[in-house]
Simulated assay, not measured.
Amino acid sequence: MRKADEQGFREFAAANAASLRRTAYLFCGDWHTAEDLMQSSLMKMYMAWKRIKDLDNLIAYARKVLLRTWLDEKRRPWRRAEQRDGELPDAADATSDPDTTSAKLWARELVHTALLQVPPRQRAVLVLRYFEDLSVAEVAVAMGCTEGTVKSQTARGLATLRAIVEKLDSSSGRVAS
Rank of each mutant, 00 (worst) to 15 (best):
D56V: 02
N57G: 00
N57T: 03
L58G: 01
L58K: 06
I59V: 14
A60G: 13
A60R: 10
A62V: 05
R63W: 03
K64F: 00
L66K: 05
L66D: 01
R68M: 02
R68W: 14
R68C: 00
W70E: 02
W70F: 14
W70V: 05
R76S: 11
R76H: 08
W78P: 00
R79S: 10
R84L: 07
D85H: 14
E87H: 05
A92C: 00
A92P: 01
D93Q: 02
S96L: 15
S96F: 03
T101K: 09
S102G: 12
K104F: 15
L105A: 07
V111G: 04
V111R: 08
H112Q: 15
A114N: 05
L115E: 01
L116F: 03
P120L: 06
R121G: 06
R121P: 07
L126A: 03
V127P: 11
V127G: 04
R129Y: 09
R129V: 05
F131A: 15
E132M: 12
D133C: 08
D133T: 08
L134P: 10
L134F: 14
S135L: 12
S135D: 13
S135Q: 04
V136N: 01
A137Q: 12
A137T: 15
E138N: 13
V141R: 08
V141F: 09
A142W: 02
A142S: 15
G144I: 05
T146F: 07
E147A: 08
E147V: 06
E147C: 10
E147F: 01
G148R: 12
T149S: 09
T149L: 05
K151S: 13
S152A: 03
R156G: 01
G157M: 02
L158N: 00
A159F: 00
A159H: 00
T160S: 06
T160V: 11
L161H: 07
R162E: 13
A163Y: 02
A163R: 14
V165I: 14
V165L: 11
V165W: 06
E166H: 03
E166A: 07
K167H: 13
K167A: 15
L168S: 02
